[in-house]
Design a protein around this nucleic acid. Structure first.
Lengths: 186, 186
DNA sequence: ATATTTGCCGACTGTTTAGTCAGTCATTAG
DNA sequence: CTAATGACTGACTAAACAGTCGGCAAATAT
């Protein structure tokens, strides 16, 4: 139906399999079932398509995480819910997770304005600040704390993706790993 | 002098800046100060150069880490020394660190035999097994523990690289973060 | 002295690629 | 009914690319 959506979906799938430069625009158009020129009708360059895809995924993920955690009240519950939501989202959207990881370590990251990145991190930083002011978590630079939580989450995701557990076992791992994370920062 | 070495160094620098496919072989040869054909004299394909570079870096890093930790006796000290060595090595070899991260999230990773990967991980797994049998660290799947330690290390590296601290402050962060890691797994 | 090997060169080529563009067709507006 | 619009097409092109190859100069072997 929506050809722009089809192009983004096709690009996602192919980028994860072959890498950004390993995927010709012609292949993306073919996979999406549209003409070659249509891709350039929606995205003026290949780079713009890559950026658009990244922004699209990031937006969908953030929305999901904040929606999931919004009814939580205590600091621990908010953090836990966000942590769980990140992991469940990534498990249900493996391609998106793998794409974002590839993007973040690629030179394309520099095409995203630092201000935009900072803006998207702000809610998380604010939350950590509150937890620290209320003496719930140890006093550390928030940048450090955030990095540690992110990479912890990333690690669990990587582990779950390569392990292919049952839903129950998956939940067990996620739950355990949150407690490990919690004991690390409190 | 050694043109093969010069090619590997040039490739490393350019890959980190422009990505694998964003770097033409001609640019690598030029940066290395050798002729175009010389690159293909040493590496039959571009892919082979990428793999060779990855293996070269991994070897150098592992050697350094194990050399650093070999005189330690207790489990905690071995782990700590390996953790510190990983971080110091990455800080002194930022390009190498960034390259490996890019490689690991790229489709090139699949060109490395799973057996080879398993082999290189074995020493770490064995060590964690010992720590668990001696009841020093919590009982968890070793794969999970290893992933968590790796991503913790990766996170700190990322933090240090973007922060640009003084040597003293750097040491402080590294030391603190080891204690956080330790409190997480014990 | 001659032959052989080795490390290296750089012009060259067939293929692939991102991006263009002239034009089609269905829908909407006058 | 006619005109205008805009999404969409796919053949096309100029540039860039990985990899080839015939040959050179210096070292080594005979």
């Amino acid at each position: 139906m929506d050809k722009k959506r089809k192009l983004l979906d096709a690009a996602l799938k192919l980028f994860v399999e072959y890498g950004f430069h390993g995927t010709p625009t012609s292949m993306i158009a073919k996979e999406a079932g549209v003409a070659n020129g249509t891709l350039f009708h929606y995205f003026t360059t290949k780079d713009e398509l890559i950026i658009a895809l990244y922004v699209d995924i990031k937006t969908r993920m953030s929305t999901y995480i904040f929606e999931s955690a919004k009814e939580q009240k205590t600091f621990k519950n908010i953090l836990k819910e966000q942590f769980l939501a990140s992991l469940y989202w990534a498990q249900d959207n493996k391609l998106e997770f793998l794409f974002v990881e590839q993007f973040k370590t690629s030179p394309f990251l520099s095409l995203i304005a630092p201000l935009e990145i900072e803006e998207s991190l702000k809610p998380y930083f604010d939350m950590l600040h509150r937890g620290m002011k209320d003496k719930i978590i140890k006093s550390h630079p928030v940048g450090l704390l955030f990095t540690l939580i992110s990479s912890h989450t990333y690690g669990i995701n990587q582990y779950l993706i390569t392990s292919n557990f049952s839903k129950a076992k998956q939940h067990q791992v996620i739950s355990d790993s949150f407690e490990m994370l919690w004991s690390m920062i409190t």
